[in-house]
């Protein structure tokens, strides 16, 4: 694997995480418990669409095959997607989306903070923009996790259920493979071990502050890095890619 191939894979991974999170967040449009939160969640979705667009565009520009960001978003099949499994899980509950976004936005905040120092100038510029967004997402969702966990018996129960269900998907965020190792040597990629330390520190302070309990670290799901996904990604893509698949190159 050349550095260029590794960088392509790295950007696709980051871009796919943003794109699939954006899709799930956008599903809250008109479904949030209050108008203000409807806007907050769709604002996050828009931030992530923008981030996905930048990262996939950059990926396309370094692949040597000249794909556009749209080619990468709409014309890859499920096993070619490299997002973390946590981002494709369906949100059946408001507590679920808040806990999920708290976990992932905290990860992204520390990830992009580290990537601001990347030796790759484009990646560093995208990181500088993303870190501001992620910081807000992290603050907004953390406040909600505390509000729900330390709220009523019912809201605490639902938030705890979300923590328990999502915890086994958090380990994957920090998995390091050949792509990471090659790019870390070049000073391009972030050190995920270090990010895991920061992430855990934040999360183990926030969860008890929300009167919630941390589950044990037993089984952790994996697969996103090699394109093995949950049953949910296929459904997302069949809807998201419908237009480009049915009417390739459609314009309006």
């Amino acid at each position: 694997m050349t550095e260029q191939q590794a960088l392509f894979k790295y950007c696709v991974r980051l871009g796919d995480n943003a794109l699939i999170q954006s899709y799930r967040l956008a599903e809250w449009c008109s479904n949030a418990p209050m108008l203000e939160e409807d806007l907050a969640l769709t604002n996050m979705a828009l931030d992530m669409t923008g981030r996905a667009q930048m990262l996939l565009q950059y990926a396309g520009s370094i692949s040597g095959e000249g794909q556009t960001s749209d080619d990468l978003a709409y014309r890859r099949s499920e096993p070619e997607y490299r997002n973390n499994l946590i981002s494709e899980l369906p949100d059946n509950d408001f507590a679920f989306v808040m806990v999920k976004q708290m976990f992932t936005s905290t990860f992204e905040y520390f990830l992009y903070l580290a990537l601001m120092e990347s030796s790759d100038k484009t990646l560093a510029a995208i990181a500088a923009k993303s870190v501001k967004e992620a910081r807000y997402h992290m603050a907004h969702t953390s406040d909600w996790v505390v509000r729900l966990g330390d709220g009523t018996g019912e809201s605490n129960r639902r938030a705890q259920e979300a923590v328990n269900a999502l915890w086994p998907y958090t380990g994957e965020l920090f998995e390091t493979d050949d792509v990471d190792r090659l790019l870390q040597e070049k000073g391009v990629a972030a050190n995920l071990e270090q990010i895991q330390i920061w992430w855990r520190q934040y999360v183990i302070e926030t969860i008890p502050a929300a009167k919630l309990e941390l589950p044990s670290d037993d089984y952790q799901h994996t697969g996103g890095r090699i394109g093995v996904h949950t049953e949910y990604l296929g459904h997302i893509l069949s809807e998201m890619q419908y237009l480009q698949r049915a009417y390739p190159d459609a314009k309006w």
């Binding site: 108008l35 203000e36 939160e37 806007l39 907050a40 604002n43 807000y136 603050a139 907004h140 406040d143 509000r147």
Partner: peptide
């Protein structure tokens, strides 16, 4: 929460 909701509703 008021500051965040104001931000999300009116300053985007």
């Amino acid at each position: 929460m008021a500051l965040q909701n104001a931000r999300d509703t009116y300053t985007r």
